[in-house]
Amino acid sequence: MAEQAIPGWKKWLEGSGDQVIFLKGFFRNVFRGGFEWSEFVRQCYEIGYKSFMLVGTTAFIMGLVLALQLRPTLVNFGAVSMLPKSLAVSIVREIGPIITAMICAGKIGSGIGAELGSMKVTEQIGAMEVSGANPIQYLVVTRILATTLMVPVLTLLGDVLGLLGGFLAINITSSVSAMLYFNKCLASIDFTDFLPAFIKTIFFGFVIGFVGCYKGYNSNRGTESVGLAANSAVVTASLWIFVIDAIVVQISSLLFYR
């Protein structure tokens, strides 16, 4: 007997409902006793420390390239002294958070999706469930909280390295002291530049962890589903990062930049 095809809208609604239930399960377990501190610290190390080189290198290069490309335009307008300010504002407000989040979505989101997907396929999650242990507490809560904490930290480090990249680019073509450069950078950014950007990185981190865990935890049986979980974790998290970015920019524009 052929299975009846389920309409796309119904699948989408079912998926959304499952995500809400998963989210509810996460929050319920966060505030329940028995938090897995050792696993949380391990995840922070895996997610934060082991991503630092990749995020740092990319941010450094982005700062360098941005400075090299901005300089000719500013020279044309006779505004080359605005270069540190332009760099600082663009890196702190947008480039730092977005680049870090996209890298983390690719590296961490896919990693979490594949790891949990593989655990699901090999019945490890099932073994935890039937033994009376709490896999949501051990696997999901720790990973989502670790990404929520570590993505903002990585973004801060990425911002600093991006500015260092800009300093190097400026010193390729001219000579500016580090003191002058960083003083100008810091003088050009204030609380309203930093705070919304920092807040959105918390949401980015949460979304990366949540989507990775949801896709991995709910992957269907079979090895194909592991790859699918990793892939769809990256795609969905990336999409959500841009959506959150657009929303936060709109809200912060209304609040701070009118």
Binding site: T122, E123, Q124, G126, A127, V130, S131, G132, A133
Partner: peptide, 29 residues
């Protein structure tokens, strides 16, 4: 959960936690 504590379930594959050593696997429950 209380009922499951009284029931042991051995999976076909063994379902060992592959990121943990044998000792950690046994310590987990």
């Amino acid at each position: 959960k209380e009922l499951r504590m009284k029931i042991g379930f051995l999976f076909q594959s063994g379902a060992l936690y592959d990121s943990m050593t044998v000792r950690e696997n046994l310590e987990f429950p």
